[in-house]
Simulated assay, not measured.
Amino acid sequence: MSPSVHAHDESPCTRCGACCAHFRVSFYWAEAAERGLPETLYEPLTPVLACMRGTYSKSPRCAALAGEIGRQVACSVYDQRTSPCRELQPGEEKCLQARARHGLPALPSH
C-alpha cells in the first residue's frame, strides 16, 4: 500500500473498503480519461458507461483497492477516483449496506 494514499486522512474509509468490495462502480465512460484513470483499472459496461475493473462480478472488489477489508485499505488511484466513489459518504445508507455485508458495525451518519 502506498504511504501517500490517505496519509492525511483520518476517515473511517481508510480502515473499511467495504463499498469497494460490494458495489459495481459504474460511471460515464469519458470520466476515466478526464480523471487520468489508468486504462487497466476500468472496462466498458455499455456504449456510454464504464466500470471499475473487478466491480462487475459476483464477488466484486475494485482492482484499485489495496489492503484488507475492515482493517486497513487504500485506493491506489484515490486522487483520480470516479464520481460514484467521491459521492459515497461514510455512514450513509449505501455505506451501511456494504459494511453489513462484510460483517462490519454501522458507522454514525454525518
Rank of each mutant, 00 (worst) to 15 (best):
Y28W: 13
Q89N: 09
R24T: 11
E39P: 11
C20H: 07
P84I: 06
A21M: 06
S59G: 06
S76G: 13
L37G: 00
V77N: 09
C62S: 10
K94R: 15
E31D: 10
V77Y: 05
Y42T: 05
T82K: 06
K58E: 15
C85W: 08
R53E: 06
A63I: 00
E39V: 12
P44R: 08
C85E: 06
L41Q: 09
E34M: 06
P105R: 13
L49N: 13
Y42F: 15
G67F: 11
P44G: 04
T55N: 07
E92K: 04
R24L: 09
C75H: 09
A106E: 15
G36P: 03
L65R: 01
C19Q: 07
G54D: 06
G67E: 12
P105C: 11
I69Q: 08
P60W: 08
P47H: 09
P47Q: 06
A74D: 12
L41S: 12
E92S: 02
A50M: 03
R101T: 02
C20Y: 01
C85H: 08
G91V: 04
S59H: 13
R35D: 01
P44N: 06
Y28I: 14
Y42H: 15
R61L: 14
Q97R: 15
K94D: 14
A64I: 08
C62Y: 01
A18R: 03
Q80C: 07
G54V: 03
T55Y: 05
P44E: 02
P44C: 04
R24P: 03
I69C: 04
R61C: 10
D79L: 13
M52P: 04
R53D: 03
A100S: 14
E93M: 11
Y78P: 08
P60A: 05
A33H: 06
A18M: 02
Y56I: 00
R35E: 08
F27V: 03
R81C: 11
P60V: 02
E39C: 01
C51D: 04
L96C: 04
Y56C: 08
Q72L: 14
F23Q: 01
T40F: 02
K94P: 09
V77F: 12
S26N: 14
A74P: 00
